[in-house]
Design a protein around this nucleic acid. Structure first.
Length: 564
RNA sequence: UGGGGAAUAGUCUAGUGGUAGGACAGCGGAUUCUGGAUCCGUCAGGGUAGGUUCGAAUCCUACUUCCCCAGCCA
């Protein structure tokens, strides 16, 4: 089965587009947009929408705009704009010269509002926010008309002008569409179009003190840009009648809004509000903490853009509310990293091993292959010497059944090196902890092959004690212990389900010397352990690695089963 | 009690009146100088009840369950 590319995705949105193309609804054009609000960092859920919108444009030889929906200066910041641009670029998408801002259209939107007032379809209301809520009615009861609903067009025009001129305080007045206070769709009960906000805007500064609401602004933005298919998430489904109403009343170009289900992932949260809270309360180190589902967090963790794009393609697009298992994301990651990542040896929890019959001062430079999936990656030299470190987990004094690794009297292979046999175990007298192993090696097995065809059941990774580099390794686990942390028991908060063991720092790991010049962001497979990525926290004296994802571990599974 | 949506294996997803297919997860085996990768096999599915039809996941009717909506947020 082809799991990586080429087959055209098929989904209900592309079905709609195919149909529109056949009927020539938009003159054969396909033009989408990704419209983030710059009030936080992008996360993997946004990546789904980005891949969808840019992907559709690419599939149909169309265009996709990047447009910041910057209509609420209270929550929006330049930092977020910058991070969003970086993240989408990193994901591999290009909007060419089509970077737009809703705020670019404020003047045009104002004129459209005047047009609606002149048509008797909008009015300035002086009810307070509380009163408006009260007048709106409820889900089951209709609302009531505001006493200001029937002002003259002239008065509305005049008042709206004074709103723009900054003559009224925040909250004192709003411009509302005059639709239907009895509509069964609450969005149609005279929705607010403009509110007064004397707030500095990241782009327009203090030019404006009235700002358009989403429902009013969004369709106009799409219309102005000539968008054909305006793709958004399910919760906007019952806003569509309003989207359509504004464009129809104005009589301007009318894109088609299509809604799809947003992405949910197990063991994490996908709401900007919750992610912001984790950042602000210091539960994580920042928006780019490698445990965060943000694009910047995944990047720092070591995810590749390819793996995220592939994931987005494989989860599909539908209207069914769904939650994808994190295992699928990790599968896509491993699939990519397995092909890309150079192999190295690194020992996370070192156990000292002395090869008794190996000459004291001898060093051998042994050949190790860089990537068995891609022979073109070549080989490198790894130094072997009398004292080594192996993984503590690779030795058991009293091995359980099915444990193939090192144990007293047992022979194993050191990868690319020699067969060794454990002849003695030194322990700490107080604690009984194993502190050192004594082994012998078979010189005839140099390079790791037995000339006699002698078999060994395990191959271990190792480093030379003398030549290894010291490194810090950060092991990450799921941020939450609950599959759906937002599904809280009453009184509880999603933070109650934070995993106390989501980060484990190993301060004195040993890695092979070829890693001396590894640069931040570079990714490796530590053989038999997982994929790791150099963190920007690394310094000249100490490399810091993030564990991106462990390798699949059949042994761990067997061990777990036998525990039961 | 109103309106808008959605229901296919443990989790996603295809199929658009004609043998329910794929992926992830699981399980078993082969192979392996990574208990990785690879390969092979296997488990398991149309919310319920009726109806139309030679034939229904698909069409019709009724019901059930879940999600969203009462911001001057998006």
């Amino acid at each position: 089965m082809n799991t990586t590319n080429s087959e055209q995705p098929r989904d209900f949105i592309r079905d709609i587009i195919n149909n529109d193309l056949q009927t020539n609804k938009y003159g054969g054009q396909v033009h989408t947009r990704f419209p983030p609000e710059p009030n936080g960092y992008l996360h993997i859920g946004h990546a789904k929408a980005i891949c969808l919108n840019f992907g559709i444009a690419a599939d149909y030889n169309g265009l996709c705009n990047l447009r910041f929906d910057d209509t609420n200066p209270i929550k929006e910041e330049q930092e977020y704009i910058d991070s969003i641009i970086d993240d989408i670029r990193w994901l591999g998408f290009d909007w060419e010269n089509r970077l737009y801002y809703a705020s670019d259209y404020f003047e045009q939107m104002y004129e459209y509002a005047v047009q609606l007032i002149k048509a008797g379809k909008a009015y300035v209301d002086e009810l307070s926010a509380d009163e408006i809520r009260d007048y709106r009615g409820t889900l089951t009861h209709p609302g009531r008309h505001s006493p200001y609903r029937n002002r003259s067009i002239e008065e509305n025009l005049d008042l709206f002008g004074h709103m723009r001129a900054g003559e009224f305080p925040d909250g004192s007045r709003v411009l509302r569409a005059k639709i239907d206070m009895a509509s069964r769709n609450l969005n149609m009960r005279d929705p607010v179009m403009y509110r007064i906000l004397h707030s500095e805007h990241p782009r327009t500064g203090d030019k404006w003190c009235i700002y358009p609401m989403y429902d009013w602004a969004h369709g106009l933005e799409d219309s102005i840009e000539g968008i054909t298919h305006s793709i958004c998430t399910l919760e906007f489904e019952d806003h569509r009648p309003l989207y359509d109403w504004f464009l129809d009343e104005l009589g301007i170009y009318h894109p088609h809004q299509i809604e799809f289900a947003r992405l949910n992932l197990t063991y994490t949260v996908m709401s900007k509000r919750m992610l912001l809270e984790l950042v602000q309360k210091g539960q994580v180190s920042g928006w780019d903490d490698p445990r965060m589902p943000t694009i910047s967090g995944l990047r720092r963790r070591g995810y590749t853009p390819e793996s995220i794009r592939n994931f987005s393609r494989r989860i599909g697009v539908a209207k069914t509310g769904s939650t994808i298992g994190i295992a699928l994301l990790e599968h896509c990651l491993r699939q990519d990293l397995n092909k890309q990542a150079q192999r190295v040896m690194g020992v996370l929890r070192p156990l000292r091993v002395v090869i008794d019959n190996y000459p004291e001062d001898q060093v051998e430079e042994l050949d190790a292959v860089n990537n068995p999936e891609y022979p073109g990656a070549g080989t490198r030299k790894v130094p072997f010497s009398r004292v080594l470190y192996i993984e503590r987990d690779d030795f058991r004094e009293d091995p359980p059944k099915n444990f193939f690794r090192l144990a007293p009297g047992r022979e194993v292979r050191l990868r690319y090196a020699y067969f060794i046999t454990c002849v003695d175990v030194s322990k700490d007298e107080q604690s009984g902890e194993v502190v050192e192993l004594h082994c012998t090696y078979d010189p005839a097995t140099r390079g790791g092959d037995s000339p006699y065809g002698r078999k060994v059941k395990a191959t271990l990774h190792w480093v030379s004690a003398k030549y290894a580099l010291e490194a810090e390794v950060r092991l990450y686990n799921q941020l939450f212990i609950k599959e759906d942390p937002t599904n809280v028991e009453d009184g509880a908060d999603f933070k109650a389900y934070l995993n106390p063991n989501s980060l484990e720092i190993l301060a004195s790991c040993r890695v092979e010397p070829s890693l001396a010049n590894a640069t931040p962001g570079s990714r490796y497979q530590f053989e038999r352990q997982g994929y790791f990525c150099v963190d920007p926290d690394s310094s000249a004296g100490k490399i810091v690695f993030n564990r991106t994802v462990p390798l699949r571990d059949t042994w761990a599974k067997i061990e777990k089963h036998e525990d039961k």
